[in-house]
């Protein structure tokens, strides 16, 4: 059978990542995006946004968490071709792009050494960011729930909870 693309068979794809638009040709070439590419793959291999990590590549560990229209999702479980017209935010998109000042949540992770190996950290920060966007003053249990899909094997959980709670508290005072 010959594979033909139907209505969606536009040959280009535009992604909005961290406020910037990126256009790609659809295809299998080294600089193209294939229909089978996950968003995580495209972010890493096409845009060089390697802050988004791939660990389980099966939707279970949360290392690839990014925000889509403000909500935390696992970018390994999304096809890139289905992400057009959405606002995608990655770890590289946090903080102030003009002043280069990092997000208070990131600063709080630094202040609490809320990581060990740091591999899961970007995903954890993105999940926490989504929570704080929706609920600026969460309880500790609400933070646990929001991070319940994020793997951390070093067990930095306790410091992470401290960091998120402290960031929320600071945010609330502003």
């Amino acid at each position: 059978m010959t594979l033909t693309l139907e209505k969606s068979s536009h040959s280009t794809l535009t992604l909005t990542v961290n406020g910037e638009k990126h256009s790609f040709m659809l295809g299998e070439g080294p600089h193209e995006v294939a229909s089978s590419h996950t968003l995580a793959h495209t972010l890493r291999e096409r845009l060089g946004l390697t802050g988004t990590k791939i660990s389980c590549d099966n939707g279970a560990c949360g290392c690839c968490t990014v925000l889509i229209n403000g909500k935390a999702v696992q970018s390994c479980m999304l096809l890139t071709v289905e992400c057009e017209e959405k606002e995608i935010t990655t770890i590289e998109g946090l903080g102030d792009p003009v002043t280069n000042v990092i997000d208070p949540l990131q600063q709080s992770f630094i202040d609490h050494t809320a990581f060990q190996c740091g591999f899961c950290t970007p995903g954890i920060i993105m999940s926490a960011k989504a929570l704080l966007n929706e609920n600026p003053s969460p309880t500790r249990d609400e933070v646990k729930e929001a991070l319940s899909g994020n793997f951390c094997r070093c067990i930095s959980h306790y410091h992470v909870l401290d960091a998120v709670m402290a960031a929320a508290k600071k945010g609330g005072n502003q």
Binding site: M1, S8, S35, H37
Partner: peptide, 29 residues
């Protein structure tokens, strides 16, 4: 992931037509 063709459907009717067209070789997402 191994390559597949990808089609966006815009209505239920269209989905059903596409499923018929691909005769069991398609999966819905």
């Amino acid at each position: 992931m191994k390559l597949f063709a990808h089609v966006n459907a815009y209505s239920v009717d269209e989905t059903i037509k596409l499923l018929a067209k691909y005769e069991g070789t398609a999966k819905l997402n």
